[in-house]
Design a protein around this nucleic acid. Sequence first.
DNA 1: TTGATTTATCGAAACGTTTTAATATATTTT
DNA 2: AAAATATATTAAAACGTTTCGATAAATCAA
Lengths: 345, 345
Amino acid sequence: MAITIKDIAKKAGVSISTVSLVLNRKGYVAPKTKEKILSVMNRMDYKPLHSARKLATQKTGNIGYIIWEGHFSEVEMFYSQIFLGMEYAARKSDSYILLTTVKEDFDPKNDLPRFLKYNDVDGVALAGRVPHALIEYLDNQQLPFVLIDYELPGKSYNCIKIDNYNGAFRAVENLVLSDKKYIAFVGGTFFHPSIKERYRGYREALEKYNLVDDGYLKKYSYCENIETSRAIGENGATKLLNRQPEIDAIFCCNDTTAMGVITGIQKIGKRIPQEVAVIGFDDIPPAEYNMPKLSTLRVPKLEIGKQAFMLLNELINYPNMAPQTRMISVDLVIRESSHSEGNEQ
Amino acid sequence: MAITIKDIAKKAGVSISTVSLVLNRKGYVAPKTKEKILSVMNRMDYKPLHSARKLATQKTGNIGYIIWEGHFSEVEMFYSQIFLGMEYAARKSDSYILLTTVKEDFDPKNDLPRFLKYNDVDGVALAGRVPHALIEYLDNQQLPFVLIDYELPGKSYNCIKIDNYNGAFRAVENLVLSDKKYIAFVGGTFFHPSIKERYRGYREALEKYNLVDDGYLKKYSYCENIETSRAIGENGATKLLNRQPEIDAIFCCNDTTAMGVITGIQKIGKRIPQEVAVIGFDDIPPAEYNMPKLSTLRVPKLEIGKQAFMLLNELINYPNMAPQTRMISVDLVIRESSHSEGNEQ
DNA sequence: TTGATTTATCGAAACGTTTTAATATATTTT
DNA sequence: AAAATATATTAAAACGTTTCGATAAATCAA
């Protein structure tokens, strides 16, 4: 049987309570005693038993992380990275992240993640597009939760948002200032609010420089409502460039799409970036290894995970906090796909 | 405060023990009593408290899943899928999967995953290439563990293996039977035993049909010891095809590499599969959406996760079981990249 | 000096289960 | 009909912590 708090107490010649106080950095305990206890703990390699602590404190020490099943495995590694950020943050804290997925046709009656069903988490992070019924359920249950990169119009929930608008604006502005005249947009589904925002940033940057005339947006935008963004990119680039050969830059709704776009351009035989410049969004790992290396907006995914975790912890400790939104800003990373002398900035 | 077993006992007019027996499907309980208790539980929406159960049973109800950090986020979604398979299996059981990563330069003294440090798991699954020091540590701790898609020469640990050899053999045999004469291999690092096995399958299939003459393997193999397999693929295809234009098929060590290979071939301007056929390995999700759709060997990743979980559960319940290896077989999936009439088989 | 306050320690209850051993009743075997 | 066995229920101990309230000693204010 493993070492318990009792053993430590006996060995250190103090009561269990005192050991517990030291363990939890609470109350008054004389420096000498404290030191003694710590040294004994160390020597005996004492590991407090999770379940016993949790039983006494009535907390679980777990945080749930829920994403849509498709997001987990199909297309993006985006949400896995966010998970990793949370996990890194959790390592320093006293909790574990329980990752689970939900299906599109989620029904709270039958499909409730097990950790919700059995109250095994103190709070939940929801990333990306997620069933509204689930959000409502959590709201009703009064369980602390944060939305990551998602929002519900008209509702004020705790969220971690990405500054999609400004990122897109900056990218397109950069293209304009590099003397690009016909800047296209290739994007996926507009179900997702983030994509909408990126499109808005694209549009408003063009407006700022008076580039949009009648029909511009129709002519130079390509959107398709499917989930496999690489294919969207390849289709989009092909169709747009065949129809409007004057296009000299393409801003893409995300990196996966951008990588498809690049393939499309290459197949047509135009040079990147000299003839057509490409900028993506997200900075997923392959972006850097793509050929040419992809210019993009770096979304600090690990940081987002960390912020989500920290916000959640606050919510757990101060349940009456007013809902807050944290905006995470993004950096324009210039690589080979948009500028000949691809120097990072 | 939530409903406890006490409340159920009182309401049902029985003792706590009886309720517990029903909860755990143990001992003798009269059908009537049982039914009564179950109905009360149901009516009151009783949820047994994890920490209390775990304290009493001295188990954690958690299973750790450890992968190398690079594998998690950089290149492959392979290991995430396996995780998902474990998570699905865990849903039906009474445990949670705790996912964490370790770094290449792992040192058991400092970098021990928190759930190992604090004994918060009953068992561990290790996927892919993983620090040997970690494996040794687990072995010493007598903590049940399973290796997934990895092995240590000379050691007999519990593992879930993929039938890499036969898969590769079958793929290459299929190419031979489709009248391909010059079948190349493009692969990544040989650090990983699975890649070695795939190469062996490639070689032996060629030998079976007496295709290998002097220098064949040197001439037609391309391996590079880096981790970004897409780039390996593109480089490999380019170099091989320029040097040996007679190549009419390429078997790749995995799908990511294969997708790079396809890009490389396309840039050279050869037609797939008419001039060069391509087969990958793994069947990662993008394989199906690639253009052309990628022929590959389907590795049942969810199934692997499930098997790992189940084996682990057995090990936990019967600690003295002899180590066993479970071989998971793979299916050849023919899509567009290898045969003109891409019909699945 | 006395009384109030701060510092330090501890005993004991509480957290919600499982499990062991005891007891009681019903059924089967002799 | 007695003995043995199977069925059904329970009280109480145990699991390893945290925390409340009590107590004691040390320090401070008057």
